[in-house]
């Protein structure tokens, strides 16, 4: 009897908050996507599929933005994996634990700092056309200076570079821990069998950290698909001609700047479906039989 009181006492407020802030908004959001929503009106009109039709009318633009989102996520994930695995592998090679810790801490620092702050550092310090470090380096080598944040072609690449800098520390720490947990005998045995460094890495170490690897794959991709802050700070208006506009930023602009909450909700629903599909595909692809485990 006493137990059931305790269970109720915990669950009622707990599930209440979840209901209020996760479940109801989800249903509500779906509802809004069928409405002609405006914050300036008190009652909202049902608009049927109008918002979804508008998505089709804007197909060119939507395609571009979805394309940008995929380009950004895929390139950044690949870059992230190549860099973080390389660096993690190097960290594991360090003989002293102190060195390992120092390097991990250094690479993790940008993950700790607020993205707004670090993006601001990049914007004013590295990418500025007025004495920015990137341009100073170009000038030093006699190359023409660039308008990093103003150019349609460069902006997206710069944001990718920034994301790599601010985020790979996360995976470096995860991967270096996973690499360290690999039983040394297996690595030694492969050495005896004459396995080279590359062979060792791809055939022994990587499969052995299979589960970590697939988990990290999914979470990294998802977090990039939802990246917002760096686009808001570095791109200001999403780049000229939407060249650096991604889905989260587009949803934000449409709902909070252009007051198209219904339309924005429809985009949000579409991006929700996309996220689900990506997750399922990844989970399926990564269900490889990690037979060593």
């Amino acid at each position: 009897m006493k137990s059931s009181k305790f269970v109720l006492g915990v669950l009622v407020p707990g599930m209440g908050l979840i209901l209020l802030f996760c479940i109801i908004p989800l249903i509500y959001g779906l509802g809004i996507s069928f409405c002609d929503y405006s914050v300036y009106r008190t009652s909202q009109e049902f608009a049927g599929l109008k918002n979804y039709m508008k998505l089709l009318e804007n197909a060119e633009l939507v395609k571009k933005i979805v394309g940008n989102t995929f380009k950004y996520s895929i390139v950044t994930v690949l870059g992230n994996f190549i860099l973080s695995l390389t660096i993690a592998q190097m960290i594991v090679r360090m003989q002293s634990n102190a060195l390992k810790t120092i390097f991990r801490v250094i690479f993790f620092l940008p993950c700790i700092a607020p993205t707004v702050g670090t993006a601001m550092i990049w914007k004013t310090g590295l990418l500025s056309t007025n004495g920015g470090v990137f341009n100073n380096i170009l000038e030093y080598f006699g190359v023409a200076v660039q308008n990093w944040l103003g150019s349609t072609t460069l902006l997206m690449n710069v944001i990718i570079l920034f994301t790599l800098w601010m985020d790979i520390g996360f995976n470096i720490v995860i991967f270096s821990a996973a690499l360290e947990n690999i039983p040394q005998e297996l690595v030694e045995a492969s050495k005896v069998d004459g396995a080279g460094a590359w062979y060792q890495f791809f055939k022994i170490r990587l499969p052995l950290m299979g589960r970590t690897f697939s988990f990290v794959c999914v979470t990294t991709m998802l977090s990039y698909f939802q990246a917002f802050t760096q686009f808001k700070i570095l791109s200001k208006t999403g780049g000229a001609n939407y060249s650096a506009t991604v889905l989260p930023y587009y949803i934000y602009m449409e709902s909070f700047k252009n007051n198209n909450m219904g339309y924005a909700s429809a985009i949000a629903m579409v991006s929700f479906v996309l996220i689900m599909i990506i997750t399922l595909i990844q989970l399926y692809l990564l269900r490889i039989d990690w037979s060593y485990e």
Partner: peptide, 30 residues
């Protein structure tokens, strides 16, 4: 603890875990 609807409630929790923040942004705001 064991209680009625435990499985259902936990399934709900797991399902909402997959919902990305940008979906909740607009309705939460309203």
């Amino acid at each position: 603890y064991r209680f009625r609807m435990k499985k259902v409630l936990f399934m709900i929790i797991l399902a909402t875990m997959m919902v990305p923040g940008q979906i909740l942004m607009i309705p939460r705001f309203i």
